[in-house]
Simulated assay, not measured.
Amino acid sequence: MSTPFLFPQWMKAQSERTESALDRLLDPNKLPPIRLHQAMRYAAQGGGKRIRPLLLYATGELAECELSRDALDAAAVAIECIHAYSLVHDDLPSMDNDDLRRGRPTVHKAFDEATALLVGDALQSKAFEILAAIECDPLVRLDLIHSLAVASGSRGMAGGQAIDLESVGKTIELQDLQQMHAMKTGALLSCAVRMGGVIAHLNAAQLEQLTIYSQALGLAFQVVDDILDATADSQTLGKTAGKDAAQDKPTYVTLMGLDYAQQKALELEKIATASLECFGSKAQALRELALLVVNRGK
């Protein structure tokens, strides 16, 4: 008789694994330049949902054979370094000008603005340093580096952020909003799933199904973010609530209304979970993560 899958226990174990890997692979606080390394750890280890590492670990479980824990851990830390750097720069006065992140002062408030800029730069570099050091098939390592570079660059996260800044105070079409968020938020989420699949040596057909899953999940994540920004308070969010509306940014709620956004999130969750049918019970963690994304704040 097989052991039932217990998602809360799984998520706790994988979250602890992520924190341990971050502590192990980030440069130590006492290594010069000390202030910069302290600020990097402050940014990367300051809590958060760790959705990207969780997606990566869950995808790795689809493998037919046992995988290198070191490779998965390295990829998880690398993508979390990119995510942390994006938040540090996103919070700067020249961008969203926010004082609160994950329930704590943002990096430029806890340290200073110049240090925050360097933290983002250094975390980005650290991500690729970590990936380059993975002991695995060179083609796998190259795929991981390329995937993360594309997802975080002008055709991914950074490009989506640029479109976001250009859209402030403007009315945009729904398809343009979806494209912006597919780049700004969805690209790194999709990358986490792909990296897990590449390490697991999944075939092209399996990776294609995971692409459908991750694209639906990435869009659902942003739709729910927009819902929470409009309905939750700062204490619940761990960041400033109502920021998008205050800055006159287009969101799914402002563009289409709250009811539409809530229904859209549920539709995307169904698309995501349906794409996992070919993996059977091995994809249960991925199914539960889709539910977790859609039900955030409930």
Rank of each mutant, 00 (worst) to 15 (best):
M1A: 15
M1F: 15
S2L: 10
T3S: 15
L6P: 10
P8Q: 09
W10C: 03
A13Q: 12
E16S: 12
A21E: 08
R24L: 15
D27H: 14
N29R: 15
P33C: 06
P33I: 02
R35K: 15
L36G: 07
L36V: 08
M40F: 08
Y42P: 01
A43V: 09
A44C: 14
G46I: 05
G47S: 09
R52C: 07
P53I: 07
A63W: 02
E64Q: 11
C65W: 14
S68Y: 03
A71I: 03
I79E: 09
Y85T: 01
Y85R: 01
L92C: 07
S94E: 13
D96R: 09
N97S: 03
D99M: 11
L100V: 10
R101D: 01
G103K: 03
K109S: 05
K109H: 09
A110G: 08
L117Y: 13
D121I: 09
D121G: 12
A122H: 04
A127R: 06
F128D: 08
I130L: 13
L139N: 14
L139W: 12
I145T: 06
A151D: 00
A151Q: 02
G153Y: 07
G156N: 01
A162R: 07
L165W: 04
L165K: 11
V168W: 04
T171R: 11
A182Q: 09
A182E: 12
M183R: 12
G186T: 00
L188Q: 00
V193R: 10
V193W: 03
G196L: 02
I199A: 11
L202I: 06
Y213C: 03
A220S: 12
Q222Y: 04
V223P: 00
D225H: 05
D226Q: 10
D226Y: 03
A230T: 04
A232W: 02
S234T: 13
L237K: 00
G242Y: 06
K243R: 13
K243S: 14
Y252G: 10
M256W: 06
A265N: 03
E269Y: 11
K270M: 15
A272H: 00
T273Y: 09
S275E: 06
S275R: 08
S275T: 08
L276K: 05
E277C: 13
A285T: 05
A285I: 13
L286N: 00
N295F: 12
N295Q: 14
R296D: 03
K298N: 09
